[in-house]
Design a protein around this nucleic acid. Sequence first.
DNA 1: TTGTGCATGTGAACGCAATCACAAGTTCGG
DNA 2: CCGAACTTGTGATTGCGTTCACATGCACAA
Lengths: 207, 207
Amino acid sequence: MKHKGIPDETIRRLPVYLRGLIFLQEGGQDRISSSKLGDFVGVQSWQIRKDFSYFGEFGVRGVGYEIKKLIDGIKEILKLNKVQNAALVGAGNLGSAILSYPGFELYGFNVTMAFDNNAKKIGKKIKSIEIMDVSKLDILKKKNVRLGIIAVPRSEAQEIANALVKAGVKGILNFSPCYIMVPKKVKVMTIDIAGYLARMPYYTLNG
Amino acid sequence: MKHKGIPDETIRRLPVYLRGLIFLQEGGQDRISSSKLGDFVGVQSWQIRKDFSYFGEFGVRGVGYEIKKLIDGIKEILKLNKVQNAALVGAGNLGSAILSYPGFELYGFNVTMAFDNNAKKIGKKIKSIEIMDVSKLDILKKKNVRLGIIAVPRSEAQEIANALVKAGVKGILNFSPCYIMVPKKVKVMTIDIAGYLARMPYYTLNG
DNA sequence: TTGTGCATGTGAACGCAATCACAAGTTCGG
DNA sequence: CCGAACTTGTGATTGCGTTCACATGCACAA
């Protein structure tokens, strides 16, 4: 199933809906209206209905949405039905935190491998995952890992990205504060943590 | 100086430009064209020119932009001229990494206080910052800290946000994967790390 | 069976941001 | 001084995503 003409912003909101719905389901609920869901996840109800409508009819008029059906639907759209493995590069403070981050599981991700270039770290374990030498990145191809997470200093990020691409990675989540160049077929998402904070004063300091 | 009618997307890109320009400046460069800068930070040249043009004329036709002038200009727009203190709540894996994160300094931020509700952590130090009891959050008012960073489990995030607002915080950077309700005068930015990863399969698994 | 209340789905209108195309200004060589 | 090569700044255009308004459909009570 190909989803053409779907706004990127809609795709960005789907994980937000998904986690809200899973939480509601865990609370024992099995049905919800767009406006209740909207209040819960912080999105307007018409936005939610519009987003879902791109993919067909998920709800029942006059009734609402069946939570399980929505969850399954979103997972299928986002292709989250199979567990996917990811590899981390850079086992510093941030990298270690990511390796231990419990939030990935919800969406079916497993960070199963970790790499670093620091000899002191190589061989050690974090959460039962052994840190390997970054020069062994090629192993990802064999292990069929298609997602890479970069948490190295800016100066090394591009080099690591090149190695990941060479190792057959299709998507890169980049925590280094820099632009990374990759072939068009590879998707890069950069999370610039400090960049978020940098916008705060603009919005909060009225002058 | 008030900046009305500036696209939010432009504001979002300013920190990207800023960090690129600072890097170029450290490399000894003092002038650059929009297209060279664009190649460096991953933005189209016309987009850069358009963004700058909202704030007046920063460059010289036929010549380019003076890097120092741009840096000063962006810092003024984003109100990054004064060092600003921030407080972290939640000294778990992610929180500790944020506390040690070196990237905030570039934009003039200092994470100067840390809080947790775990008795075992209270009193300990991370990077010379002592972890305080979360019940003492009110001290932020006295210390004039206006930015809060939330890195606690989802179940506690709203509660912590309430406490931060009560303590006079004007901006909240939220790493908990949930929607947070605050008074309109307070700005919340949520970074849902797993949410980024959750979109990867959509873009990389073609089928 | 009919009426009332509620909630979805969607075409249309609107608004914001990206993109384009080019006029205006600078530099430099000769 | 002139022309060629650059580069900025910006009005106009296009495209995308949000917002709106309401037709459509279900549930339930009487």
